[in-house]
Design a protein around this nucleic acid. Structure first.
Length: 438
RNA sequence: CGGGGCGUGGCGCAGCCUGGUAGCGCGCUUGUUUUGGGUACAAGAGGCCCCCGGUUCGAAUCCGGGCGCCCCGACCA
């Protein structure tokens, strides 16, 4: 994309409504615009980030055998009456009526719908386990939306649901999902720590939240500093083998880590004093096992080995995709602006022409630009180098490809790494290889 | 839902107390100049002052009622 054609309204000054860094930067960089309290429009660069995150989430879900579906945002109230949650959910659920006065709702989550879909299609225990997921917009009518996309009312979420024939199977599914989550966050370039969590109104008794540690987080967290050094993904895990999954799970849950809701003073006291850390975290994922809560309440069963009805053991698993955009920024920015991890950046690199109009620099820039759609060209709309540098810093492009008259003459480009400030003087070919290979 | 605050060109704000027909910075347009990290000068464009009602000769300003948004707290991916 060329700056001169881009719908990318950056701002020099911070809109007064934004308080925290990620929200301010998202507005300033032209990633989003607010359209109502807690409701945002995603502009091209922001949407590219959102899609990059969704893509990685999708790949890691697929890798553990989950199958993607897409369910509607609007659901029938009757479906929710079957589980009893229509009355239980409260004013956070946005309720609607159609022209025939039928009661509908904008889905805050999808346990009821997926359970119903499952029940209509799966008839035998031999078809289990099943793992289904979707990446879809949700709406929860928060009392107080804030922090931009980190606590919006409308949000983009990956929600997965597992169906197993027995408890052992459900635990395997839960652990596989734990693995997928850690892999997902690693690829996104953030460290999200799994913590023992409250199961909340969804019910059940096996639950972990994944939190990105950041001072602006909404949850208080207590953890053993030793887990900061753990690399849980260095050894391969056989997702079909219970023992391998169990070993992995034990490793991940070995050190104390809990949100304030589940904080256990007795267990905390056993953590060596020098390693006790209290802080704040941003919840970006949550996994639950809740047994037969929905399958039983909704009357969804399959035939068991003995021919009798078997209510599947279920779990549900969420990742806040839109929230992650804000959370990643909270974890990765500086005074000058965004610093995108390579995997989620809207563009891999920005080309900065230090002397537009110079035939040599123009030619090198066009050559670089022709190498791929993942490259952003700062062309004629900002003719001054300073403006371009500041804008590129604000946008957080992982690489800046700086083309000046001297380098252009002998075919070299200066590469600057946004995150570290490192600089490299490379040939055009090498520069492209480094940027596009990264 | 309790407490606080705000609503004036695209963005950030002043003006309101003490009514007299709207201003500043940035951005935008045009021209000249300049260009190795937010150039300088000049000339322009752009505003139902959130909405409705009231008071008044006259309302951005005073009064009443709405609506919207933000912040603190209680609640949540």
């Amino acid at each position: 994309m060329r700056l001169s054609r881009a719908f990318q309204p950056t701002l020099k000054e911070v809109p007064s409504e934004a308080q925290i860094a990620s929200h301010r930067l998202m507005l300033r960089a032209g990633l989003i615009r607010q359209t109502a309290a807690g409701i945002y429009a995603w502009l091209p660069a922001g949407l590219r980030v959102l899609r990059n995150i969704a893509r990685i989430v999708r790949e890691e879900q697929d890798a553990i055998g989950a199958q993607e579906v897409l369910m509607p945002t609007i659901q029938s109230a009757d479906l929710w009456r079957r589980s009893g949650r229509y009355d239980a959910y409260g004013p956070e659920m946005l309720r609607l009526k159609d022209r025939h006065e039928r009661e509908l709702l904008y889905g805050p989550t999808n346990e009821e719908m997926i359970t119903d879909l499952f029940g209509g299609a799966v008839k035998s225990y031999r078809e289990l386990p099943q793992v289904l997921y979707q990446i879809q917009w949700k709406f929860r009518d928060e009392v107080r939306p804030r922090f931009g996309v980190m606590r919006g009312r409308e949000f983009f979420m990956k929600d997965a649901y597992t169906f197993d024939a027995d408890y052992e199977g459900a635990v395997k599914s839960y652990r596989r999902m734990m693995l997928a989550y850690l892999r997902t966050f690693q690829r996104l370039g953030v460290r999200a720590v799994p913590m023992v969590a409250d199961t909340g109104p969804i019910g059940g008794n096996l639950s972990h939240e994944f939190l990105i540690l950041a001072p602006t987080g909404e949850s208080g967290v207590f953890y053993d500093a030793a887990l900061e050094e753990q690399d849980w993904l260095s050894e391969p895990v056989d997702i079909d083998d219970s023992a391998s999954l169990a070993a992995f799970f034990d490793k991940v849950t070995h050190f104390y880590a809990a949100t304030d809701e589940k904080h256990d003073e007795a267990a905390w006291a056993e953590v060596p004093e020098g390693r006790r850390r209290e802080g704040r975290g941003i919840e970006v994922g949550h996994i639950f096992y809740f047994g037969t809560k929905y399958s039983e309440s909704m009357g969804i069963s399959v035939s068991g080995p003995d021919g009798a009805p078997l209510y599947p053991e279920m779990g549900s698993y969420g990742i806040g995709v839109s929230r992650l955009v804000g959370a990643i920024i909270e974890a990765s920015h500086d005074e000058a602006g965004l610093i995108w991890p390579d995997a989620v950046a809207p563009y891999k690199a920005a080309i900065l022409n230090l002397k537009p109009g110079d035939s040599a620099t123009d030619a090198v820039c066009e050559r670089l630009y022709a190498a791929g759609a993942e490259i952003f060209l700062y062309d004629d709309r900002a003719e001054r180098a300073g403006v371009k540098f500041n804008d590129a810093d604000l946008m957080g492009h992982p690489w800046q490809m700086i083309v000046g008259p001297r380098g252009a003459k002998d075919g070299t480009v200066e590469l600057k790494r946004r995150a570290t400030g490192e600089r490299f003087e490379l040939s055009v070919e090498d520069a492209l290889a480094k940027v596009l290979g990264a």
